[in-house]
Simulated assay, not measured.
Amino acid sequence: MSHARNDGPDRVAKSEIPEAPGAEVPGALDPAGAPAGEAVPPAVTKPPARKPGKMKPTRISGTWIAVVVAIVVLAFLLVFILQNLDTATVHFLGASGSMPLAVAMLFSAIAGAALVALIGGARILQLRKQARRRR
């Protein structure tokens, strides 16, 4: 483990040596160059230089990826609907009707997603209200 710190194989890292309480040397500097026991401000470092061929992803590129994924999902959904055109009788709240099985499943998935969105939206509004009260 000492090799990871660039210590020699026979050297012990300073962090592994136990120190006795009150063993600080007056006027000694810690590794950051500040007097021992004083807070050291974080070092200001510049960000690492980017490689010339590597670009940071943007929001637009993320949107394009989402659009492509949505098109693929819709294509699979269309194939599913076209393969499940058998008629099914649906009963809901006293009403009944018949429609293709895949369409009935699609409606139920949309209703479930809408219910989750309503509950999530209510929770977001609740959290925003709490955050305003704390200010």
Score class of each variant (00 low, 15 high):
Ser2Gly: 13
Ser2Leu: 07
Ser2Met: 09
His3Asn: 15
Arg5Met: 07
Asp7Phe: 11
Asp7His: 09
Gly8His: 01
Pro9Lys: 00
Asp10Arg: 04
Ala13Pro: 01
Ala13Trp: 02
Ala13Gln: 00
Glu16Phe: 04
Pro18Val: 01
Glu19Ser: 06
Pro21Ile: 07
Ala23Lys: 06
Ala23Phe: 00
Gly27Glu: 03
Ala28Asn: 03
Leu29Tyr: 02
Pro31Arg: 08
Ala36Trp: 00
Ala36Pro: 02
Ala36Gln: 01
Glu38Gln: 15
Ala39Gln: 08
Val40Tyr: 03
Val40Ile: 01
Val40Lys: 05
Val40Gln: 07
Pro41Met: 03
Pro42Met: 00
Ala43Cys: 02
Ala43Met: 05
Val44Thr: 12
Val44Ala: 12
Lys46Val: 15
Pro48Arg: 04
Pro48Tyr: 02
Ala49Phe: 00
Ala49Glu: 14
Ala49Lys: 08
Arg50Ala: 09
Arg50Leu: 08
Lys51His: 12
Lys51Trp: 07
Pro52Thr: 02
Lys56Ala: 08
Lys56Cys: 06
Thr58Cys: 00
Ile60Tyr: 11
Ser61Gln: 14
Gly62Ala: 07
Thr63Ala: 11
Thr63Gln: 15
Trp64Ser: 14
Trp64Arg: 14
Ile65Met: 14
Ile65Gln: 12
Ala66Arg: 09
Val69Asn: 12
Ile71His: 05
Val72Gly: 04
Val72Ala: 11
Val72Asn: 08
Leu74Asn: 06
Ala75Leu: 04
Leu77Ile: 04
Leu78Cys: 07
Ile81Glu: 07
Leu82Asn: 04
Leu82Glu: 04
Gln83Tyr: 04
Leu85Pro: 01
Asp86Glu: 14
Asp86His: 10
Asp86Thr: 15
Thr87Asn: 09
Thr89Pro: 02
Thr89Asp: 03
Val90Ser: 09
His91Ile: 12
Phe92His: 15
Phe92Met: 15
Phe92Glu: 15
Gly94His: 00
Ala95Trp: 13
Ser96Gly: 07
Ser96Ala: 11
Ser98Asn: 05
Ser98Thr: 10
Ser98Ile: 04
Pro100Met: 01
Leu101Trp: 04
Leu101Ala: 13
Val103Pro: 04
Ala104Gly: 13
Ala104Cys: 12
Met105His: 07
Leu106Thr: 08
Leu106Ser: 05
Leu106Lys: 05
Phe107Asn: 14
Phe107Gly: 12
Ser108Val: 10
Ile110Thr: 03
Gly112Glu: 15
Gly112Cys: 14
Ala113Lys: 08
Ala114Glu: 11
Ala114Asn: 05
Val116Met: 13
Ala117Gly: 03
Ile119Phe: 10
Ala122Trp: 12
Ile124Gln: 05
Ile124Cys: 06
Leu125Arg: 11
Leu125Ala: 11
Gln126Thr: 13
Leu127Arg: 11
Leu127Ser: 08
Leu127Ile: 09
Arg128Ala: 07
Lys129Ser: 13
Lys129Asn: 09
Gln130Ser: 12
Ala131Ile: 13
Ala131Trp: 10
Arg132Tyr: 09
Arg134Cys: 08
